[in-house]
C-alpha cells in the first residue's frame, strides 16, 4: 500500500501491511465472564444433587424444559431463581461438588496455556516477556505472571519453592473471593469461599498437565483475602 503524499514521503510505506488475521484480538465484557463464574458453584451443587438423588437418576429429562421465576431449579429446598439458598446446603462440603468445580478449571487450564503462550511469542520481538519456558520454575513464573494477569489483571504476589517439586504461590488479595462477604460473618465467608477456590486450583493443574507435568494443587485461606496455593509435583528442580 502506498502512503499518501506528504512532506518527505514519496515512497511506499512498509508499515502499512495488510492486517494479519491472527493479530486481531476480540473482546467481550468482563461482566459476562464474572456472571458466568458466579454460576459455577451453584451449578456444580445442583448437578451433584441431581446425580445423587437416585429417584431422578432413573427419570432424567427426555425433553427440554425452560426456567421460570417461580419454578424451583432443583429439589434442594427453596432453590428458586435469584436466591442463594443452594449455597447453604451441607452438600457444599461434599467432595464431588469440589471435584466438579476443579474439573471446570482443569479443562480450562489445559487450553489456556497454549492460548497465552501463543500470544506471548507473537509479541516477543516487541519487548514482551517472550522468554522460553525451560524448566518447572519457568512454568511457575508463567503461571504467576501471565496466567494471573490474563485472569485477574494482576500478578501473583509471592512464589516460593523448596526446589524439590513443591511450590507455594501467594495472592494477597485474591480477586475471586475478595468481594465475597457473607452476611453471617467471616467464618461463613471463608467456608463458602473454599469451594470457589477449587476453580483456580483446577486451572493451575490443567496448565501443568498441558506442559506434561503431573501436579497436585490445593488452596487455603490463611487470612482473608490472602490465598495460598500449594503445588506438589514430582519433578526435582
Amino acid at each position: 500500500m502506498s502512503s499518501t503524499a506528504g512532506p518527505g514521503s514519496g515512497t511506499t510505506s512498509s508499515s502499512e501491511e495488510a492486517p494479519d488475521i491472527l493479530d486481531t484480538q476480540s473482546y467481550v465484557n468482563a461482566a459476562s465472564l464474572q456472571f458466568l463464574l458466579q454460576e459455577l458453584v451453584p451449578t456444580s451443587i445442583r448437578v451433584s444433587h441431581k446425580l445423587a438423588d437416585t429417584n431422578t437418576l432413573l427419570s432424567l429429562a427426555d425433553k427440554d424444559e425452560t426456567s421460570t421465576i417461580d419454578k424451583p431449579l432443583s429439589s434442594i429446598p427453596n432453590d428458586l431463581p435469584g436466591t442463594v439458598n443452594v449455597l447453604d446446603l451441607a452438600a457444599l462440603d461434599q467432595d464431588d461438588v469440589s471435584l466438579r468445580v476443579e474439573a471446570y478449571g482443569y479443562t480450562l487450564g489445559l487450553k489456556l496455556a497454549e492460548l497465552l503462550l501463543y500470544k506471548n511469542t507473537r509479541f516477543a520481538g516487541t519487548g514482551g516477556p517472550g522468554s522460553k519456558i525451560v524448566d518447572i520454575l519457568d512454568i511457575m513464573k508463567f503461571v504467576c505472571r501471565d496466567v494471573w494477569k490474563c485472569l485477574y489483571n494482576k500478578q501473583m504476589d509471592n512464589l516460593r519453592t523448596n526446589h524439590r517439586g513443591t511450590f507455594v504461590l501467594v495472592d494477597n488479595n485474591y480477586k475471586l473471593i475478595s468481594s465475597l462477604s457473607s452476611p453471617k460473618g467471616i467464618h461463613d465467608t471463608v467456608s463458602k469461599a473454599k469451594v470457589h477456590l477449587w476453580f483456580p486450583c483446577g486451572i493451575i493443574r490443567g496448565i501443568l498437565k498441558s506442559f506434561g507435568v503431573d501436579g497436585n494443587v490445593t488452596a487455603e485461606i490463611t487470612q482473608f483475602p490472602v490465598v495460598t496455593f500449594n503445588i506438589y509435583t514430582s519433578i526435582n528442580n
Binding site: Q34, P183, K192
Partner: peptide, 11 residues
C-alpha cells in the same frame, strides 16, 4: 456490588 455478590439473594 450487590448483583455480582454470589451471596446476595434477590429482594
Amino acid at each position: 456490588y450487590v448483583m455480582k455478590d454470589p451471596f446476595y439473594s434477590l429482594d
